[in-house]
């Protein structure tokens, strides 16, 4: 039985007790699989699973509070769910988790850059390559060149929290140490302060304030009452200036310190390619260093900024 058949079977059995199940369906081309709601048995025929299922469905859980929801998760998505459980945003009893072992998802922007395609009619995966048929032309590229960056360094391909695990767990692509080595982070770390300041100024200048980053984030659940939109207190002006745009990214990053599971949805959602995940990755490294903590692993843990120790092992005492 194929993995998808097994998944459909598990959902079919669970559906009568659920209001809906969050899954992915076929999109306008073979490279896109938008999220959708499975409410009836017949909706299951649209369900797909594969490297084009990029969206983190946990972003929707906040909207669905009070409902009994099923959710299909990849390893990284499951970490967001764990974080939401920790923070008591979702209730474990009203959630059924279908875990899919994941070998990585596509970065459509990378594909657009690597292959000159107009309309991906068909997509096939075999032996580490992806073969895309567009018009009457078929071209292929190595999968590792078009997988999302996060997947190349993923060491949580299997969900840690689930009700149904479909198929066999897969081996992590890299070790935890290798996962920590990140060329984009190293590049930023290699700059001096002036260069970094200029780096952010250039990137933030492009920002449209569309808040796709915020709204795609599974943990940015205050989105309708976000302080970026608040007029009183007046945190942000409406002016489209670097100051306001950058300030928002600082808000986003600080509010995710010790909570971000690095699912990368913020950066993926950005239409103008601002590398906003860098700030979060850096803060995660800081949190790991200071509190030896990684978000989204243990549903019973307390995020480090929601607690304290009287004697902090890794914070130096202030002299003056």
């Amino acid at each position: 039985m194929s993995q998808l058949t097994e998944l459909k079977e598990a959902i079919r059995k669970a559906l009568p007790d659920l209001d809906l199940v969050l899954g992915w369906r076929e999109g306008y081309d073979a490279l896109h699989a938008p999220p959708y709601h499975i409410r009836r048995q017949e909706d299951l025929e649209h369900l797909v699973f594969g490297p084009m299922c990029v969206n983190n469905l946990a972003s929707q859980l906040m909207h669905l509070r009070g409902k009994k929801v099923g959710i299909i998760v990849k390893g990284c998505d499951a970490r967001s769910v764990v974080e939401l459980l920790q923070e008591k945003i979702v209730n474990r009893e009203s959630l059924v988790i279908f875990a899919m072992p994941c070998k990585g998802v596509l970065d459509v922007k990378k594909i657009r850059r690597a292959l000159d395609i107009d309309h991906a009619r068909e997509v096939h995966f075999h032996n580490g390559t992806i073969e895309i048929t567009s018009g009457d032309k078929t071209s292929s590229v190595e999968l590792k060149d078009v997988l999302a960056d996060k997947c190349l360094r993923c060491h949580y391909p299997n969900a840690t929290e689930y009700d149904h695990f479909i198929g066999e767990p897969v081996e992590p692509r890299v070790s935890a140490e290798e996962a920590a080595a990140d060329p984009a982070m190293e590049e930023l770390a290699g700059m001096d302060l002036t260069e970094r300041f200029a780096f952010w100024k250039t990137h933030m200048n492009r920002c449209l304030r569309c808040y796709a980053c915020r709204n795609s984030c599974p943990l940015c659940f205050c989105r309708d009452v976000c302080l970026a939109d608040s007029r009183d207190p007046h945190w942000q002006s409406q002016e489209t200036s670097v100051r306001e745009k950058w300030m928002f990214q600082m808000i986003h990053a600080m509010h995710l310190a010790g909570r971000c599971t690095q699912c990368g949805e913020c950066e993926r959602a950005c239409p103008v390619g601002i590398p906003i995940l860098l700030l979060k990755k850096h803060l995660n490294a800081v949190v790991k260093d200071l509190f030896n903590y990684e978000a989204g692993i243990d549903p019973t843990a307390t995020p480090p900024l929601f607690t304290f120790k009287v004697e902090e092992e890794n914070i130096k005492e202030i002299e003056l």
């Binding site: 002036t194 300041f197 800081v286 949190v287 902090e312």
Partner: peptide, 24 residues
């Protein structure tokens, strides 16, 4: 009793964020 303990964690994290923003 404990306000400054929370502050210490937050402010230490903040202090280590600044260089990544290009702020001394």
């Amino acid at each position: 009793s404990e306000g400054n303990y929370y502050a210490r964690r937050r402010l230490e994290v903040l202090k280590r964020l600044l260089p990544m923003l290009g702020i001394h």
